[in-house]
Amino acid sequence: MQTTLMIYDGTAPADSDVPRTGGVPLAPAGFTWPMCGSGCGGPLQFFAHLPVEDGVLSIFVCQNDPGACEFWAPASGANRVYLFPRRELQPMAVPASGVALLPATSAIRTQVVTLDPDEYDDQDDHDEVAPDAYDLARAGWKREPEERFGKQREVLGSLGGSPSYLEDDRLPACPSCAGTMDFAAHLEEGISSLTEMKLGGQLGYVFVCHTCREGAFLTD
């Protein structure tokens, strides 16, 4: 099984059209900064700019008063996922108040990791959950033989594949067509307190309906 990990790759220009966390979002002309609809009414914090096959995923999550707004719930209004067309994007005007930006911009490079699930099967315990591709790829990132810990904090998430250990009843439906959305990405908090997307120590999940160009975000 293959997993496309997103790996921290140093800093990036704040308005660059490259895979990154932080910086300034790029959006079509006339697009306005999304505001929290869960309670605080402040600007959502821009988390990530992720170019994909049919556009750019732009992810926003409320961080104005962590824990007060339900940033972990897909229909709370405390997060937004947009699938913008790749052409004619421009930097958005940043709100003057509220927690709108991450402290730093982190470049992302992708790394395809191939694992043999048979190596992780416990033949003596058939009740075990099947090996999870993302969990295994992240846990084994840059781990040498007989080394207990790798460099998991370099992993900022993954692109495509399937959502790690997420129950079917939590898969979000598209608000436009009511169909089940496709899984698009995992998001991890990040490599340091200066760059991290604060998710309360949880894993973030990004979904998208490519037909309606609608997106959704939730955490585990």
Rank of each mutant, 00 (worst) to 15 (best):
Val129Glu: 15
Gln202Ile: 02
Arg87Gly: 04
Glu144Gly: 10
Asn64Lys: 10
Val81Trp: 04
Val56Ile: 11
Ser76Cys: 06
Ala107Gly: 09
Thr21Pro: 00
Ala185His: 07
Asp125Trp: 09
Ala104Leu: 05
Ser16Tyr: 00
Val56Met: 05
Asp124Ser: 14
Leu156Val: 12
Val208Pro: 01
Val206Pro: 02
Gly22Pro: 03
Leu136Met: 11
Phe84Cys: 02
Trp33Leu: 03
Ala178Asp: 15
Val112Asp: 13
Ile191Gly: 05
Glu53His: 10
Phe183Gly: 04
Leu115Pro: 00
Val99Ile: 14
Ala139Glu: 15
Pro43Leu: 04
Glu70Asp: 12
Gly201His: 07
Leu115Gly: 01
Arg143His: 09
Pro19Ser: 02
Thr195Glu: 15
Met181Pro: 00
Phe31Ile: 14
Arg213Gln: 08
Ile108Asn: 01
Ser158Lys: 01
Gly190Ile: 08
Thr3His: 02
Pro34His: 07
Glu214Phe: 03
Pro43His: 09
Met197Phe: 09
Arg87Ala: 15
Gly67Leu: 03
Pro163Asp: 12
Arg138Trp: 06
Val24Met: 02
Asp17Phe: 10
Ala133His: 09
Ser58Thr: 15
Ala14Ser: 12
Phe31Met: 13
Glu128Cys: 09
Pro28Thr: 12
Leu26Val: 04
Thr114Asn: 15
Arg170Phe: 14
Lys142Phe: 11
Phe60Ile: 08
Thr110Phe: 15
Glu128Ala: 13
Thr11Lys: 08
Leu156His: 01
Asp65Phe: 12
Asp169Met: 12
Cys174Asp: 06
Ser16Val: 07
Glu119Met: 12
Trp72Ile: 06
Ala78Trp: 03
Ala68Leu: 13
His126Lys: 14
Asp65Leu: 14
Val94Tyr: 02
Asp65His: 14
Thr110Pro: 00
Gly160Cys: 01
Ile7Gln: 02
Ala75Lys: 09
Cys62Thr: 05
Trp141Gln: 10
Val208Thr: 01
Val94Leu: 03
Ser192Gly: 08
Leu115Gln: 14
Trp33Gly: 06
Asn79Val: 06
Thr4Leu: 10
Val99Phe: 11
Gly39Trp: 06
His49Trp: 11
Ala29Asp: 11
Ile7Leu: 08
Ala48Gln: 09
Pro145Asp: 14
Pro66Lys: 14
Thr219Leu: 05
Glu167Cys: 13
Gln45Met: 11
Pro13Cys: 07
Pro103Tyr: 04
Ser158Leu: 08
Arg109Cys: 07
Cys40Met: 07
Asp220Ala: 05
Leu159Tyr: 03
Thr105Ser: 04
Ala104Cys: 13
